[in-house]
Protein backbone atom coordinates (compact mmCIF):
# COMPACT_ATOMS: atom_id res chain seq x y z
CA UNK A 1 0.00 0.00 0.00
CA UNK A 2 1.22 3.46 -0.83
CA UNK A 3 1.54 5.89 1.97
CA UNK A 4 0.30 9.10 0.32
CA UNK A 5 1.18 11.23 3.32
CA UNK A 6 4.79 10.21 2.99
CA UNK A 7 4.67 10.73 -0.77
CA UNK A 8 3.16 14.16 -0.31
CA UNK A 9 5.90 15.09 2.15
CA UNK A 10 8.58 13.93 -0.28
CA UNK A 11 6.87 15.81 -3.07
CA UNK A 12 6.88 19.04 -1.05
CA UNK A 13 10.53 18.47 -0.16
CA UNK A 14 11.46 18.22 -3.79
CA UNK A 15 9.56 21.41 -4.51
CA UNK A 16 11.23 23.20 -1.64
CA UNK A 17 14.59 22.07 -3.01
CA UNK A 18 13.62 23.69 -6.37
CA UNK A 19 13.60 20.34 -8.17
CA UNK A 20 11.38 20.10 -11.23
CA UNK A 21 8.39 17.77 -11.17
CA UNK A 22 8.14 15.74 -14.39
CA UNK A 23 5.08 14.05 -15.97
CA UNK A 24 5.88 10.53 -14.68
CA UNK A 25 6.58 11.66 -11.13
CA UNK A 26 4.07 11.16 -8.37
CA UNK A 27 2.10 14.32 -7.64
CA UNK A 28 -0.93 15.14 -5.49
CA UNK A 29 -4.21 15.15 -7.40
CA UNK A 30 -4.83 18.74 -6.39
CA UNK A 31 -1.45 19.80 -7.86
CA UNK A 32 -2.29 18.07 -11.13
CA UNK A 33 -5.73 19.64 -11.18
CA UNK A 34 -4.42 23.11 -10.44
CA UNK A 35 -1.87 22.81 -13.23
CA UNK A 36 -4.40 21.53 -15.75
CA UNK A 37 -6.69 24.41 -14.88
CA UNK A 38 -3.96 27.01 -15.07
CA UNK A 39 -2.11 25.72 -18.14
CA UNK A 40 -5.28 25.16 -20.14
CA UNK A 41 -6.62 28.56 -19.15
CA UNK A 42 -3.35 29.99 -20.38
CA UNK A 43 -3.54 28.01 -23.65
CA UNK A 44 -7.12 29.15 -24.23
CA UNK A 45 -6.04 32.75 -23.62
CA UNK A 46 -3.47 32.48 -26.38
CA UNK A 47 -6.00 31.08 -28.84
CA UNK A 48 -8.79 33.50 -27.98
CA UNK A 49 -6.14 36.22 -27.86
CA UNK A 50 -5.52 35.73 -31.58
CA UNK A 51 -8.94 37.22 -32.32
CA UNK A 52 -8.79 40.85 -31.16
CA UNK A 53 -5.47 41.45 -32.90
CA UNK A 54 -6.42 39.29 -35.85
CA UNK A 55 -9.18 41.83 -36.39
CA UNK A 56 -6.55 44.25 -37.79
CA UNK A 57 -4.36 42.01 -39.96
CA UNK A 58 -6.25 42.75 -43.16
CA UNK A 59 -6.26 46.48 -42.36
CA UNK A 60 -2.69 47.01 -41.13
CA UNK A 61 -1.56 50.37 -42.55
CA UNK A 62 1.76 49.23 -44.04
CA UNK A 63 2.98 45.92 -45.39
CA UNK A 64 5.71 45.83 -42.75
CA UNK A 65 3.13 46.26 -39.98
CA UNK A 66 0.95 43.63 -41.60
CA UNK A 67 3.80 41.13 -41.60
CA UNK A 68 4.72 41.91 -37.98
CA UNK A 69 1.14 41.60 -36.79
CA UNK A 70 0.53 38.38 -38.68
CA UNK A 71 3.74 36.92 -37.24
CA UNK A 72 2.70 38.01 -33.78
CA UNK A 73 -0.76 36.48 -33.98
CA UNK A 74 0.79 33.32 -35.38
CA UNK A 75 3.19 33.23 -32.40
CA UNK A 76 0.19 33.32 -30.11
CA UNK A 77 -1.25 30.28 -31.85
CA UNK A 78 2.16 28.64 -31.40
CA UNK A 79 2.10 29.44 -27.69
CA UNK A 80 -1.31 27.83 -27.48
CA UNK A 81 0.17 24.74 -29.08
CA UNK A 82 3.09 24.46 -26.60
CA UNK A 83 0.71 24.99 -23.71
CA UNK A 84 -1.88 22.43 -24.83
CA UNK A 85 1.02 20.00 -25.20
CA UNK A 86 2.25 20.82 -21.70
CA UNK A 87 -1.28 20.26 -20.35
CA UNK A 88 -1.49 16.94 -22.20
CA UNK A 89 1.50 15.65 -20.20
CA UNK A 90 -0.85 15.76 -17.20
CA UNK A 91 -3.23 13.24 -18.75
CA UNK A 92 -5.90 15.37 -20.46
CA UNK A 93 -6.46 15.59 -24.19
CA UNK A 94 -6.53 18.79 -26.21
CA UNK A 95 -10.02 17.84 -27.36
CA UNK A 96 -11.30 17.72 -23.75
CA UNK A 97 -9.72 21.05 -22.98
CA UNK A 98 -11.19 22.69 -26.05
CA UNK A 99 -14.61 21.31 -25.17
CA UNK A 100 -14.26 22.90 -21.74
CA UNK A 101 -13.48 26.24 -23.37
CA UNK A 102 -16.45 26.01 -25.69
CA UNK A 103 -18.88 24.94 -22.98
CA UNK A 104 -17.80 27.89 -20.84
CA UNK A 105 -16.43 25.60 -18.12
CA UNK A 106 -12.86 26.76 -18.65
CA UNK A 107 -11.86 30.40 -18.48
CA UNK A 108 -9.44 32.48 -20.49
CA UNK A 109 -7.90 35.86 -19.81
CA UNK A 110 -10.64 38.48 -19.58
CA UNK A 111 -8.54 41.05 -21.39
CA UNK A 112 -9.49 39.49 -24.71
CA UNK A 113 -13.13 40.31 -24.13
CA UNK A 114 -12.46 43.95 -24.98
CA UNK A 115 -12.74 45.12 -28.59
CA UNK A 116 -9.92 46.48 -30.78
CA UNK A 117 -11.50 49.63 -32.18
CA UNK A 118 -8.61 51.41 -33.85
CA UNK A 119 -5.15 50.61 -35.15
CA UNK A 120 -3.66 52.14 -32.00
CA UNK A 121 -5.26 49.32 -30.01
CA UNK A 122 -2.69 47.00 -31.59
CA UNK A 123 0.03 49.16 -30.07
CA UNK A 124 -1.69 49.41 -26.71
CA UNK A 125 -2.14 45.65 -26.55
CA UNK A 126 1.53 45.06 -27.31
CA UNK A 127 2.72 47.63 -24.84
CA UNK A 128 0.33 47.05 -21.93
CA UNK A 129 -1.25 43.64 -22.35
CA UNK A 130 1.92 41.85 -23.42
CA UNK A 131 3.90 43.60 -20.70
CA UNK A 132 1.39 42.49 -18.08
CA UNK A 133 1.51 38.97 -19.51
CA UNK A 134 5.31 38.98 -19.33
CA UNK A 135 5.28 40.02 -15.67
CA UNK A 136 2.82 37.24 -14.92
CA UNK A 137 4.76 34.73 -16.98
CA UNK A 138 8.43 35.30 -16.19
CA UNK A 139 8.09 33.68 -12.76
CA UNK A 140 6.45 30.70 -14.48
CA UNK A 141 9.74 29.95 -16.23
CA UNK A 142 10.78 28.72 -12.77
CA UNK A 143 7.50 26.95 -12.08
CA UNK A 144 7.88 23.60 -10.29
CA UNK A 145 6.29 21.65 -13.14
CA UNK A 146 9.00 21.00 -15.75
CA UNK A 147 6.97 20.95 -19.01
CA UNK A 148 5.15 24.16 -18.08
CA UNK A 149 8.36 25.91 -17.06
CA UNK A 150 10.08 24.93 -20.29
CA UNK A 151 7.14 26.06 -22.44
CA UNK A 152 7.19 29.38 -20.63
CA UNK A 153 10.87 29.99 -21.38
CA UNK A 154 10.13 29.92 -25.11
CA UNK A 155 6.95 31.93 -24.75
CA UNK A 156 8.55 34.70 -22.69
CA UNK A 157 11.26 35.25 -25.30
CA UNK A 158 8.65 35.84 -27.97
CA UNK A 159 6.45 37.97 -25.71
CA UNK A 160 9.19 40.49 -25.09
CA UNK A 161 9.49 40.95 -28.85
CA UNK A 162 5.73 41.49 -28.98
CA UNK A 163 5.87 44.11 -26.30
CA UNK A 164 8.64 46.00 -28.08
CA UNK A 165 6.74 46.04 -31.36
CA UNK A 166 3.65 47.37 -29.58
CA UNK A 167 5.59 50.12 -27.89
CA UNK A 168 7.36 51.05 -31.12
CA UNK A 169 3.99 51.18 -32.91
CA UNK A 170 2.60 53.55 -30.28
CA UNK A 171 5.74 55.65 -30.35
CA UNK A 172 5.33 56.08 -34.10
CA UNK A 173 1.75 57.26 -33.56
CA UNK A 174 2.73 59.56 -30.70
CA UNK A 175 5.43 61.16 -32.87
CA UNK A 176 2.93 61.47 -35.72
CA UNK A 177 -0.05 63.70 -36.42
CA UNK A 178 -2.51 65.05 -33.91
CA UNK A 179 -5.05 62.48 -35.07
CA UNK A 180 -2.56 59.69 -34.51
CA UNK A 181 -1.70 60.95 -31.03
CA UNK A 182 -5.40 61.15 -30.25
CA UNK A 183 -5.83 57.60 -31.46
CA UNK A 184 -2.97 56.41 -29.23
CA UNK A 185 -4.29 58.23 -26.15
CA UNK A 186 -7.79 56.88 -26.72
CA UNK A 187 -6.47 53.32 -26.99
CA UNK A 188 -4.47 53.63 -23.78
CA UNK A 189 -7.50 55.12 -22.04
CA UNK A 190 -9.45 52.00 -22.91
CA UNK A 191 -6.74 49.37 -22.26
CA UNK A 192 -5.06 50.68 -19.10
CA UNK A 193 -7.59 49.47 -16.54
CA UNK A 194 -8.28 46.11 -18.18
CA UNK A 195 -4.49 45.57 -18.27
CA UNK A 196 -4.30 46.21 -14.51
CA UNK A 197 -7.05 43.64 -14.06
CA UNK A 198 -4.87 41.00 -15.75
CA UNK A 199 -3.07 40.44 -12.45
CA UNK A 200 -6.24 39.03 -10.98
CA UNK A 201 -8.17 39.89 -7.83
CA UNK A 202 -6.37 41.62 -5.01
CA UNK A 203 -4.41 39.31 -2.69
CA UNK A 204 -7.11 39.36 -0.04
CA UNK A 205 -9.65 37.94 -2.54
CA UNK A 206 -7.45 35.54 -4.48
CA UNK A 207 -8.79 32.01 -4.08
CA UNK A 208 -5.92 29.95 -5.46
CA UNK A 209 -2.90 31.91 -4.35
CA UNK A 210 -1.67 30.40 -1.08
CA UNK A 211 -1.49 26.78 -2.20
CA UNK A 212 -0.03 27.75 -5.57
CA UNK A 213 2.73 29.69 -3.83
CA UNK A 214 3.54 26.68 -1.67
CA UNK A 215 3.75 24.50 -4.77
CA UNK A 216 5.88 27.10 -6.52
CA UNK A 217 3.46 27.35 -9.39
CA UNK A 218 3.08 30.95 -8.38
CA UNK A 219 5.92 32.99 -6.94
CA UNK A 220 4.68 36.55 -6.52
CA UNK A 221 1.36 37.86 -5.30
CA UNK A 222 -1.13 39.50 -7.67
CA UNK A 223 -0.79 42.87 -5.98
CA UNK A 224 3.02 42.81 -6.04
CA UNK A 225 3.04 42.11 -9.76
CA UNK A 226 0.42 44.77 -10.40
CA UNK A 227 2.55 47.31 -8.54
CA UNK A 228 5.57 46.34 -10.58
CA UNK A 229 3.55 46.83 -13.75
CA UNK A 230 2.40 50.31 -12.74
CA UNK A 231 5.93 51.29 -11.71
CA UNK A 232 7.42 50.24 -15.04
CA UNK A 233 4.60 51.67 -17.17
CA UNK A 234 4.59 55.24 -15.85
CA UNK A 235 8.00 56.28 -17.23
CA UNK A 236 7.20 54.49 -20.48
CA UNK A 237 3.96 56.47 -20.77
CA UNK A 238 5.91 59.68 -20.10
CA UNK A 239 8.31 58.85 -22.89
CA UNK A 240 5.34 58.38 -25.22
CA UNK A 241 3.73 61.60 -24.03
CA UNK A 242 0.63 59.64 -23.05
CA UNK A 243 -1.44 60.35 -19.95
CA UNK A 244 -2.46 57.25 -18.02
CA UNK A 245 -6.18 57.51 -17.23
CA UNK A 246 -5.92 57.50 -13.44
CA UNK A 247 -6.24 60.78 -11.48
CA UNK A 248 -4.92 59.03 -8.35
CA UNK A 249 -1.70 57.95 -9.99
CA UNK A 250 1.25 59.61 -8.23
CA UNK A 251 4.73 58.87 -6.97
CA UNK A 252 4.89 57.91 -3.30
CA UNK A 253 8.43 58.61 -2.13
CA UNK A 254 7.87 56.91 1.23
CA UNK A 255 6.89 53.63 -0.41
CA UNK A 256 9.22 54.02 -3.37
CA UNK A 257 6.31 53.12 -5.63
CA UNK A 258 3.52 54.78 -7.54
CA UNK A 259 0.16 54.92 -5.80
CA UNK A 260 -2.75 54.24 -8.09
CA UNK A 261 -6.52 54.29 -8.02
CA UNK A 262 -8.88 51.47 -7.14
CA UNK A 263 -9.76 49.03 -9.89
CA UNK A 264 -13.43 48.79 -10.79
CA UNK A 265 -13.85 45.31 -9.33
CA UNK A 266 -17.46 45.21 -10.35
CA UNK A 267 -16.36 45.42 -13.99
CA UNK A 268 -13.65 42.85 -13.34
CA UNK A 269 -16.11 40.27 -11.99
CA UNK A 270 -18.72 41.13 -14.61
CA UNK A 271 -16.30 40.41 -17.48
CA UNK A 272 -15.04 37.21 -15.83
CA UNK A 273 -18.64 36.10 -15.41
CA UNK A 274 -19.06 36.35 -19.19
CA UNK A 275 -20.65 39.76 -19.55
CA UNK A 276 -17.83 41.83 -21.03
CA UNK A 277 -18.18 43.62 -24.35
CA UNK A 278 -16.92 40.72 -26.50
CA UNK A 279 -17.29 37.52 -24.45
CA UNK A 280 -20.02 36.17 -26.69
CA UNK A 281 -18.29 37.15 -29.92
CA UNK A 282 -14.99 35.61 -28.91
CA UNK A 283 -16.46 32.31 -27.84
CA UNK A 284 -18.76 32.16 -30.87
CA UNK A 285 -15.80 32.79 -33.16
CA UNK A 286 -13.84 29.93 -31.55
CA UNK A 287 -16.81 27.58 -31.70
CA UNK A 288 -17.51 28.49 -35.30
CA UNK A 289 -13.90 27.84 -36.33
CA UNK A 290 -13.99 24.49 -34.55
CA UNK A 291 -17.31 23.45 -36.05
CA UNK A 292 -16.40 24.66 -39.55
CA UNK A 293 -13.20 22.64 -39.27
CA UNK A 294 -14.87 19.42 -38.13
CA UNK A 295 -15.15 17.96 -41.63
CA UNK A 296 -11.48 18.76 -42.28
CA UNK A 297 -10.33 16.95 -39.14
CA UNK A 298 -12.59 14.01 -40.00
CA UNK A 299 -11.18 13.86 -43.52
CA UNK A 300 -7.60 13.90 -42.23
CA UNK A 301 -8.38 11.05 -39.82
CA UNK A 302 -10.23 9.05 -42.46
CA UNK A 303 -7.32 9.43 -44.86
CA UNK A 304 -4.77 8.40 -42.22
CA UNK A 305 -6.92 5.35 -41.49
CA UNK A 306 -7.07 4.37 -45.15
CA UNK A 307 -3.32 4.76 -45.44
CA UNK A 308 -2.79 2.51 -42.44
CA UNK A 309 -5.08 -0.15 -43.86
CA UNK A 310 -3.33 0.02 -47.22
CA UNK A 311 0.04 -0.38 -45.53
CA UNK A 312 -1.22 -3.40 -43.57
CA UNK A 313 -2.64 -4.96 -46.70
CA UNK A 314 0.61 -4.42 -48.54
CA UNK A 315 2.56 -5.97 -45.67
CA UNK A 316 0.26 -9.03 -45.43
Amino acid sequence: MTDTTALAAMFQQRIDAEEKIEPRDWMPDAYRKTLVRQISQHAHSEIVGQLPEGNWITRAPTLRRKAILLAKVQDEGGHGLYLYSAAETLGVSREELIDQLHSGKAKYSSIFNYPTLTWADIGAIGWLVDAAAILNQIPLCRCSYGPYARAMVRICKEESFHMRQGYELLLTLCRGSEQQRGMAQDAVNRWWWPALMMFGPSDTDSTHSVQSMQWKIKRFSNDDLRQKFVDQSVPQADHLGITLPDPDLKWNAARGHYDFGEIDWEEFFRVIAGNGPCNHERLSARIKAHEDGAWVREAALAYADKQRQRAQKAAA
Binding site: G54, I57, A285, A289
Partner: peptide, 9 residues
Amino acid sequence: CGRGPFLEE
Protein backbone atom coordinates in the same frame (compact mmCIF):
# COMPACT_ATOMS: atom_id res chain seq x y z
CA CYS B 1 -5.58 33.55 -39.04
CA GLY B 2 -7.27 32.43 -35.82
CA ARG B 3 -9.95 30.55 -37.75
CA GLY B 4 -8.19 27.47 -39.08
CA PRO B 5 -9.75 24.00 -38.81
CA PHE B 6 -7.25 23.13 -36.06
CA LEU B 7 -4.32 24.80 -34.43
CA GLU B 8 -1.46 23.31 -36.46
CA GLU B 9 -3.18 24.21 -39.71
